[in-house]
Write a protein that binds this DNA or RNA. Structure first.
Lengths: 199, 199, 199, 199
DNA sequence: TATTAAGCGAGACGGTACGTCAGGTCTTTTA
DNA sequence: TAAAAGACCTGACGTACCGTCTCGCTTAATA
């Protein structure tokens, strides 16, 4: 994980690291977080257990790394779509998310990561730093532009806005209350922007 | 769990059941879901492991039952507050929730339950039937009254409305993105009702 | 076990006793002593566990009773064959024993009983009183007649003589050193009578 | 047990092996075979259960190994006494055996091993290969020398001779029919050599 | 070029917990 | 009041993983 330079001795094998992360992802995707064991990852990756423990202190950060590696594989999108139509743009992002979660493997992997985070505050911190914060920054950037264009209430806090738009679908996914559909996603964005109150 | 009548033989001891559930709650509250083992519950409750397995098939449903027993202890509140001021009433509920989660034991117990639910679809189903659905019904009843009073958009789906109001705080709690404060809770309700868009 | 008369109330059901003993024998014959459990006997015999414990304090005496019931079922042979030819008569008895042990079920049942006896001195006492002593008495009676007829050394102790004739086959069976054959049995009798020493 | 060479990985700890065997012997000697549990051996030896199961598949072979280790500790006697007086030599051996069995711990340990053998044919095979056969070979060697010296009947099968001399005491011990005394042992040898028949 | 400090696969090890089986004991209901 | 049914506490089973610890290599950087 760390990048401090060592003076001598054999250096870390990047192929080994990649094999472990790929295997870890596959295992959570297949068996879930509870079904993932260090031993299984080691044997499937053709690696000694010690090699895993040398670089990852526990299942949680291993899974976090595995998800990051798989997710951020390659050039990142860098920016949310901006067609000028805020509602459409946000809906597009949310619909895309719903689409990704339709893949059972990815769904299970993310559930595994979330299960780890719920009970491990330290891991949650790392998760935010490396996964949540960058995503949230992109979302806030898009919303800020809308605010500057006078499309968004000038008084509203952007973090709150992000939560209002994205949390309903996320929460529905987390506790499995109802299916995730593109229409549902679009309805959430519409209501978040227009508000629930009669006018 | 079930209540089918048996013809003969010794009957289930209600005190034993209560002791197991109370102990299970205490253990999750103290050690979290990962730290809860059937063996620990058995020994702390002064009970044989088999007695637990006889009535609960796994940790998940045990914890669900334990939380239910502790939560729904006694007559339920039956109805959300209705002062006529929708925003204030919803905020009051959300602030109360935030307050409950401030108790570390309760927080950990609920995290345990949630961790179990994330990875277990079957348990999630039971959770909704026995915990989520009744709560949601109360919330929808309050919102329906507001809708009938013309305070809420007549077109809005009540389930969506519930999610919009309650999910942001729930999600923030689940993945630990930011602290839970009464002010934050109130701000969520305000924005959910008024919408994010400039008008 | 006991035969004391009870004054009132429902009396012990002889059919139940027989069913338990028969089942116990079948179970040892099938699964061995280690594979015999009170629970299995109870369920197979369609009987409550308590009913077994009421009359038999443990597996050992249950098996002893089961073997006795099956063995001494009906009129006993009462007397060993006496054709006047001692060697032939003893060989006939030993060959018959070898024949009985060829039945795998009987073999396993007897092994079960022996396993119990080896480690339980109290049970061994009961075994001798009820099974070994009567058999030994028959054998000694035959040998005594031979002694009176001048066929057997007048100085020899009859218990020792019984052991010398019957122990080699028994021991060979117990620790499974070599197969049990009629020829082998006959050779033992011959050598026991004539002695090993050159003359 | 086996001695195949492994290519890599940490090697088996001989001290652990010794501790397990010593503890196993002590436990059978104290509590008998029924009272010996893998768990007890593990905890008393300060060893993980898995470490026992890794090298011994079940109680039976563990006890066999434990007895072997304790018995064959150091250079073996290699040869039975040979003073020229066959009867005296055999009696000496048998009396020595009786003496060893007078030690309650050794008695219980051997009973445990025997109980295991009675019900486990596979274990019996191992027992013969490693304990019985070598002992029997020594005995046969002594008898063969007697045969060559014209003291023993030239026609007699040596295995039968061994059984005739040693089985009576063994069997008496196994099923606990009567006490084991030096005089009794000597009487057995005398009768086995001279025969029971009047001459 | 030889030395030496890791990295690495393999696997033994002391533990903890798993989920199951059985041992005995104790109700409760039925006959 | 005997007996079947079955709940209950206890303790052991054999297995899976945990995280740590050697082993015997291999692979660079350094001296």
């Amino acid at each position: 994980m760390t990048t401090e330079q060592r003076s001598s001795g054999r250096r870390r094998n990047p192929a080994t690291r990649a094999a472990i992360l790929a295997t870890a992802f596959d295992v959570v995707a297949e068996l879930g977080y509870a079904g993932l064991t260090m031993e299984k990852v080691a044997s499937r990756a053709g690696v000694g257990k010690q090699t895993i423990y040398r670089w990852w202190p526990n299942k949680g950060v291993l899974v976090l790394d595995a998800v990051l590696e798989r997710t951020a594989g390659g050039g990142e999108p860098v920016e949310l779509p901006d067609t000028g139509d805020l509602e459409a743009d946000l809906a597009a992002v949310l619909v895309a998310t719903v689409g990704e979660l339709a893949d059972p493997g990815f769904d299970r992997a993310l559930r595994g990561l979330t299960a780890a985070i719920i009970e491990d505050a330290e891991l949650a911190r790392a998760y935010h730093e490396r996964l949540d914060a960058p995503m949230r920054e992109l979302k806030k950037r898009r919303l800020r532009r809308a605010q500057e264009a006078g499309q968004l209430d000038a008084d509203v806090d952007l973090d709150l806005a992000v939560d209002l738009v994205f949390a309903p679908v996320a929460q529905r996914w987390t506790v499995r209350s109802g299916d995730l559909t593109p229409e549902g996603a679009r309805a959430v964005v519409r209501s978040a922007l227009r508000g629930l109150a009669a006018r």
